[in-house]
């Protein structure tokens, strides 16, 4: 259902349910949710490792020093670049598929045919 109702509102067919993009394959949606959460945990671990390395360079660390550490602007920018690269590697198959679609007139033709 994608038409606006008389109040100008639009809802999923069953607004009480979560969005499902993989009909009959709910596990695919769940798997992508799990990959998203896993990527977050990897990012957190990488940040923690980075904290250890930076504190080690300053003379050492213990748990309290790690917990209290906050990256300065330079360190934060380095981490963000590192994180974007990690995300890019994890989701490369999707990005590559998008590039393929952009270069593939046959796929675009199919899209327009299914559109009719």
């Amino acid at each position: 259902m994608t038409e606006l109702d008389p109040e100008g509102l639009v809802f999923r067919d069953d607004p009480s349910k979560r969005s499902a993009f993989f009909a009959g394959q709910a596990d695919v949606g769940r798997l992508l949710g799990m990959i998203t959460a896993l990527t977050s945990e990897i990012a957190m671990l990488r940040a923690r490792l980075d904290t250890h390395e930076r504190l080690a360079a300053e003379g050492g660390f213990d748990r309290a020093k790690v917990e209290a550490y906050r990256p300065d602007a330079t360190a934060l920018a380095e981490r963000m670049t590192d994180d974007q690269a990690m995300i890019g590697r994890v989701f490369k198959p999707l990005s590559d598929e998008l590039d393929r679609l952009l270069e593939e007139p046959a796929v675009q033709k199919t899209l327009l045919e299914t559109h009719r």
Binding site: T39, S40, A43, M44, A47, V66, Y69, R70, L76, M80
Partner: peptide, 9 residues
């Protein structure tokens, strides 16, 4: 520390 890292991610 870890929450801030998750938020940034």
């Amino acid at each position: 520390h870890d929450e801030a890292a998750r938020f940034a991610h």
